[in-house]
Design a binder for these strands. Structure first.
Length: 488
RNA sequence: GGCGCCAUGGUGUAACUGGUUAACACGCCGCCCUCUCAAGGCGGAGAGUUCGGGUUCGAUCCCCGAUGGCGCUACCA
């Protein structure tokens, strides 16, 4: 493999939930680099964490990336010469490579239990030391290892980071970055369940898949020395590293679902056009030349391929500003022909499937068809903000109510979006907090629909969708926070 | 706490790899258009480039330090 050859780049999302805007952002940059260099864009699914695995997630990721217009040359669903592209199907490969490391002493088996590790970590923190693996299993005798193995003791495989020295690597956007080895932990490479961690899988796959440029988010900088060390252990050539700035919430923290809609499903369902999202992402961090960026700020994927330059990326973390996103979307919407605009409506917020599901909810509650809008308005609205008279239960204070909404939100985020899952979860939450089912459900109803009368709550939530429902709750809380701030 | 990264109006970006009254867009304010609201047009407020040193004839741009923000610090990615 030669790094001067045409680029092979990849994105490697984890199927742990909804497709993330951050994935789309990094995907876009990788896509552009691949297209510009006449190279290949690879999609690899990093499903090595079975505790966070969400079965429906992978398909949602495919759909979302295709929706915004990014397509990949190689991936689990389209195949390619370096498959499989799903890490869970490559476990023997990682196993084999872990053994190579074991054999040449670059890695070792660690029999420490999670409890022991936790205790050691606490101790180190108390002693104001940087928490890192204490190294107990670093030099177990061959005999001890054999007997532990024979006894069937579970173990992980850790990389042996040299005690001394440092590792320097080049970040193509920042220059050389150095980490002292005293600050690099003996990272776990293989978990006790036989799956690799990101660090091992990522390095092995990037090498085997002949990735030339690793373009990923900035949060990976601190673990890059581990990756570089692994490449050296294997005697492999390093790819180039490009660390992109992290998308931010309005308060500049790393973008998160708690503070911002982060699911591409949300953006689709809320009625953003794919070209808007793509264009907006292209604005993040710059990269487009001044004459284009400065004059219109509006450009297509094709124009990005034409003019974008990854070397011009700004390193400050850009705030993902919904206000500007909406403006941009408005621009695209207005530019549509009346026919296309109508088609856009009919394929999203007025889609047949959606209308059908809604119709089913109100048929028993309707007297004339003309009342349809009265009964279902909240399904088609974006800004629903009930007044306290509507959402506040009679015997509750504003404070305890809002605190309970936070609990509801946290619960809902973690609950499967079916009535069968939602009902017991919500009821249990209410029970444990001393909230009557009536109060509990009415509160949610008010926030979701803006009214105390509505089609059945749970069914409505399911039809409205998880992403949009959660967004409505978050916006409600934000609005309440703001109005509380104004009163002070 | 330790380590690392970053730093231009409220937000996103621009300013030929040192020379500009620091530009554009979003947002905000006002005016025009108009049956309303948008859209559209016109205009305005808002940063002397986080701060302090240095290099230079000259720093947004180069160097050092401080401060601040962010990230990482898992058998998560």
């Amino acid at each position: 493999m030669s790094l001067s050859s045409t680029p092979r780049v990849r994105i490697a999302p984890s199927p742990t939930g909804d497709p993330h805007v951050g994935t789309a952002y990094i995907g876009l940059i990788n896509f552009l680099v691949a297209r510009q260099g006449g190279g290949k864009f690879v999609l690899r699914i990093e499903d090595t964490d079975r505790t966070r695995f969400v079965p429906t997630s992978e398909q949602m990721i495919f759909d979302a990336l295709r929706w915004i217009g990014l397509s990949w040359d190689e991936g689990p669903d389209v195949g390619g010469p370096f498959g499989p592209y799903r890490q869970s199907e490559r476990t023997e490969i990682y196993q084999k490579h872990a053994e190579i490391l074991l054999a040449n002493g670059a890695a070792y088996r660690c029999f420490c239990t999670p409890e022991e590790l936790e205790a050691s970590r606490k101790q180190q923190i108390a002693a104001k030391m940087a928490p890192r693996y204490a190294g107990i299993c670093r030099k177990l005798s061959e005999a001890t290892i054999e007997s532990n193995l024979a006894a069937g003791k579970p173990f992980v495989i850790r990389m042996r980071v040299p005690w001394e020295g440092s590792t320097t690597f080049r970040d193509e956007l920042r220059g050389d970055i150095t980490f002292e080895h005293t600050n690099v932990d003996d990272q776990v490479l293989m978990k006790s369940d036989g799956f690799p961690t990101y660090h091992l899988a990522n390095v092995v796959d990037d090498h085997l898949m002949q990735i030339t440029d690793v373009i990923r988010a900035e949060e990976w900088i601190s673990s890059t020395p581990k990756h570089v060390l692994l490449y050296q252990f294997f005697g492999w050539e390093l790819p180039r590293f490009w660390h992109m700035p992290l998308l931010r919430n309005a308060d500049k923290s790393k973008i998160s679902k708690r503070k911002n809609p982060v699911s591409l499903v949300y953006y689709r369902q809320a009625g953003f056009l794919p070209q808007t999202v793509l264009n907006f992402l292209g604005l993040m961090g710059g990269g487009m030349p001044a004459d284009i960026n400065n004059s219109t700020e509006k450009f297509t994927l094709e124009e990005m391929i034409q003019h974008f330059s990854i070397k011009n990326i700004r390193l400050g973390g850009p705030v993902f500003d919904l206000t500007k996103l909406k403006w941009l979307n408005g621009e695209y919407l207005r530019a549509l022909s009346p026919d296309d605009f109508y088609t856009a409506l009919r394929s999203t917020v007025l889609a047949d499937d959606y209308l059908k599901e809604i119709a089913a909810l109100i048929q028993t509650r309707i007297e004339t068809l003309g009342q349809f809008g009265d009964l279902t308005g909240f399904f088609f609205a974006d800004d629903i903000l009930p007044a306290p008279e509507v959402f506040l239960p009679k015997k509750r204070t504003l404070e305890e109510t809002l605190a309970f909404v936070v609990e509801q939100l946290t619960l809902l985020e973690a609950t499967d979006w079916t009535t069968a899952a939602l009902e017991p979860a919500l009821k249990q939450l209410g029970d444990s907090h001393g909230w009557l089912v009536k109060e509990n459900f009415m509160l949610l109803r008010a926030i979701l629909t803006g009214s105390t009368m509505s089609p059945p709550l749970l069914e409505s939530m399911v039809v409205f969708g998880k992403a949009r429902t959660l967004d409505r709750l978050r916006r409600f809380l934000d609005a309440q926070k703001k109005s509380a701030g104004q009163k002070k």
